[in-house]
């Protein structure tokens, strides 16, 4: 009799265990509880998976959970997934989180350095204007001189900034930007073609210019002397070195000029970073405290 009882008990235990496990993975309330626990523990990858499971189980638009999913992806530096999550919040026109989600999208795009996407989004308030202007500065820094003349910043846009101090600071930065005179990579390459190192002098690097001119000339003289002395192998090797120095200086002047132009804009971007609204007041802090 006792054997039968034991068997029945065992069967009941076996039936109950799967039910409990099933309840944990399909009960939305418990999934959410577990996801929140993981979020608090800063296990953001697993938290994101559990939040997405919760959204799947409830099959409803839940902006708070979508926002937390986006934060999970942002904290683990998957900015593309974060943008996707925050974008879903924007589908709901009446959401209380719309403004924060828009800012979150812009912040994540900035982390990705996707400046064209930021410009395409436009702006609705001062915080968003900051990102719009930053994107304009960053895209200008990598454009050629010819593009810049067709893509001047519209000063009238500053009138849309509500905060006076922010407007004044941005105008000051824009005025500095207007004074920047970018140098042409093609001119630099051309100068290096005429004589190795001249392109480096053009981008204010006299030391590099002297060294490049001296070394390329030296290599060329050695190659010529080797051919004169009928040292074929030495001549071929030194000619190769001369050629790589000469062409390398031309290409290096081209790339160096682009980097030089970017460095001019980089100083402005560093000034601009001090005005970053998210830097001053991170939108995710209140979520972390919870």
């Amino acid at each position: 009799m006792s054997e039968i009882k034991n068997k029945i008990g065992l069967i009941l235990i076996l039936l109950i265990i799967p039910l409990q496990a099933d309840d944990l993975s399909t009960n939305p309330a418990k999934v959410l509880q577990f996801a929140n626990y993981l979020f608090e523990q800063e296990d953001y990858l697993r938290a994101a998976i559990e939040y997405e499971r919760y959204l799947f189980l409830t099959d409803q638009q839940n902006d708070t959970i979508l926002f937390k999913t986006g934060l999970c992806h942002q904290f683990r530096q998957r900015y593309d997934y974060a943008v996707e999550s925050f974008d879903h919040i924007l589908d709901n026109q009446n959401s209380a989180l719309t403004q924060t989600a828009r800012l979150a999208v812009l912040y994540n795009y900035a982390q990705q350095q996707n400046w064209l996407a930021i410009r395409a989004r436009g702006f609705q308030n001062d915080d968003e204007f900051f990102y719009y202007y930053l994107a304009s500065l960053k895209t200008n820094s990598v454009q050629s001189v010819k593009d810049l003349t067709f893509n001047r910043w519209d000063m009238g846009l500053f009138e849309k900034v509500q905060d006076d101090s922010l407007r004044a600071a941005l105008i000051a930065i824009e005025n500095q930007k207007q004074q920047i005179k970018p140098k042409s990579p093609i001119v630099a390459s051309f100068l290096s073609t005429i004589f190795p190192g001249l392109g480096k002098a053009y981008i204010d690097r006299p030391g590099d210019a002297i060294f490049a001119g001296f070394m390329t000339s030296l290599a060329a003289i050695v190659a010529w002397q080797a051919f004169e002395s009928k040292l074929l192998v030495t001549g071929v090797i030194t000619s190769g070195i001369t050629l790589s120095f000469y062409l390398g200086t031309i290409y290096g002047s081209y790339i160096g000029t682009q980097l030089y132009n970017e460095s001019l804009h980089k100083k402005l971007a560093e000034q601009l970073e001090k005005l970053n609204p998210v830097q001053k007041n991170p939108y995710w802090l209140k979520w972390q405290k919870k």
Partner: peptide
């Protein structure tokens, strides 16, 4: 190779 040549200089 061009970048290497430039870097050497």
């Amino acid at each position: 190779v061009l970048l290497a040549g430039d870097r050497l200089l």
